[in-house]
């Protein structure tokens, strides 16, 4: 009989009328991302030895880093990711031997301006010399603050 298929189709849609919701009201409600989710990057400066493997692994030259030699050790002074070119492929995170570079599950990285998109994970001066400063202590603290400032997005809707 002609029309049987139409009726069957309507039955399906009507059957779904009182179905459970499959969506969430996004900005107000958020679902938890999976542990492996490729979200915003996070750099543990304590672990980072500024080897530059991540910058080399990147297919798009997203990572810009600057380092200085302090006490025969490489000291990371700047670590900026040009997120606007990032493919979120994870090759940089995979290449990190020290587990310093990681993905977080933060997904809202949208900004109002293109220049705000750039992710500055480290921006700090190198410590003067070894004789003063009881090593690491002070720079590490400033780094935390700076890094936090770099990570937090400008408040947006």
């Amino acid at each position: 009989m002609f029309g049987q298929g139409l009726i069957k189709g309507l039955q399906i849609t009507w059957g779904r009328l009182l179905d459970k919701k499959h969506t969430v009201k996004y900005p107000y409600e958020k679902i938890e991302m999976f542990p492996r989710f490729h979200g915003r990057f996070e750099l543990d400066v304590e672990k980072c030895i500024a080897c530059g493997l991540c910058a080399n692994a990147c297919p798009n030259k997203v990572i810009e880093m600057e380092k200085e030699k302090v006490d025969k050790k490489q000291f990371l002074t700047k670590y900026v990711m040009r997120i606007e070119y990032c493919l979120f492929c994870g090759l940089c995170v995979e290449s990190c031997n020290k587990d310093a570079l990681k993905f977080t599950n933060v997904l809202d990285m949208n900004q109002y301006r293109r220049s705000w998109v750039r992710l500055s994970l480290v921006d700090r001066p190198a410590p003067e010399a070894a004789e003063e400063a009881p090593k690491e202590e002070t720079p590490a603290k400033t780094v935390k603050v700076e890094a936090a400032a770099g990570q937090a997005p400008v408040k947006e809707g």
Partner: peptide
């Protein structure tokens, strides 16, 4: 089955 019922069996679609 749902797709078949909704689309494949639909006479207009056919």
């Amino acid at each position: 089955d749902e797709y078949d019922g909704l689309i494949t069996g639909n006479e207009i679609f056919q």
